[in-house]
Amino acid sequence: MNNAVLGVLASGRGSDLQSIIDAVEAGQIKAKIGVVLTDKPNVMALQRAEKAGIPAICVDRKKYDDRDAFERELVKQLKEHGVTLVILAGFMRILSPYFVNEFKNCIMNIHPSLLPSFGGAHAHRDVLAYGVKVSGCTVHFVDEGMDSGPIIMQKAVPVLDDDTEETLSARVLEQEHIIYPKVIELYLAGKIHVNGRHVTIDD
């Protein structure tokens, strides 16, 4: 995909964002990051973007009367910066059908479990509470539901007997930083195809 422009949405420390910045700078991802948007001020994701010379803007959810006004500002910023692919990197808000339709089939997210199991905001806690032996991470397209869009790629990691949320999170995060840039690379190369819920990837 020539002249691709990524728009990254984040809510916190931005470690997945950093892995994408690194992949762009290394030439693995052949695109530029047009803008990084956060829904909270003073988060590390903004600092990471600024350090890399990327436009970094806080669209503070608390300053908007409702989700509609908040999302319209997000869409406005993304379009003003020429974004062609929206990347959610620890963005802790469910997007409305309005937003999803503005970037139909052009929004990706990474979730720290093997979807469809353990969706939602507390995946590691829920994994440990349930007692499963394997967890991991999932890159998926975003639809109108919560962590429910077509699955693109997954990576499994073992759940150890002495794991805490922190140790499991660290192990999963290592894999997130590998597969998310890889999926973006494949998408921009035109190697990812969606047919309903099924995603195929060219060799």
Rank of each mutant, 00 (worst) to 15 (best):
S135N: 06
S169C: 11
H177P: 12
Q154G: 07
K133A: 14
P97D: 00
M153Y: 09
D161Y: 07
A129H: 14
V132N: 04
D162M: 04
P116K: 03
V134A: 07
G120R: 12
P181G: 00
P116N: 11
E176C: 05
H122N: 15
F118Q: 02
T167K: 08
V157H: 06
P150A: 13
M146C: 11
V134E: 14
G149Y: 09
E166F: 06
D161A: 06
V142Q: 03
T138L: 11
T138S: 11
F99M: 02
C137I: 15
V159D: 14
V132K: 07
P97N: 00
L128V: 15
S96G: 00
V159W: 10
K182P: 08
A121E: 03
I110A: 00
S113P: 04
L115F: 01
I178F: 02
V134F: 14
V134C: 13
Y180K: 02
P150S: 12
V134P: 10
H111P: 03
V172C: 05
I151T: 05
D163G: 04
V132A: 03
I152K: 03
V142I: 11
S113D: 13
G120F: 04
P150C: 12
L168D: 01
C137E: 09
N109I: 09
I178L: 10
V172L: 11
Y180V: 05
V100P: 02
C106T: 10
M146H: 03
H124T: 14
D163I: 08
G119P: 01
V139T: 11
I151D: 05
H140L: 08
N109F: 06
E166K: 08
S135F: 14
V127L: 15
L168N: 01
T164M: 06
S96T: 05
C106N: 12
D163T: 05
I151E: 04
L168P: 00
S113E: 02
D147Q: 03
F118I: 07
I151N: 03
A121S: 12
P158N: 00
Q175D: 05
K104H: 12
E176D: 05
E176S: 02
P112F: 06
G149C: 10
N101V: 04
C106P: 06
F103I: 06
G145K: 10
N101M: 01
E166N: 07
V100I: 10
D161C: 00
Y180I: 03
F141E: 09
Q175M: 07
L115K: 04
L128C: 13
A129Q: 15
T138V: 11
I179Y: 04
E144C: 10
S113I: 05
G131S: 12
L114W: 13
P158G: 02
I107E: 02
Y98I: 02
Y130T: 14
K133G: 13
L115R: 01
M153T: 09
N101E: 12
S117H: 12
M146Q: 08
N109G: 03
D161M: 02
N101C: 03
D147Y: 12
D143S: 07
P150E: 15
D162Y: 04
K155H: 15
K155R: 14
A121G: 08
P158I: 02
V134Q: 13
M153K: 12
A170T: 10
N105H: 07
S117I: 09
A121M: 15
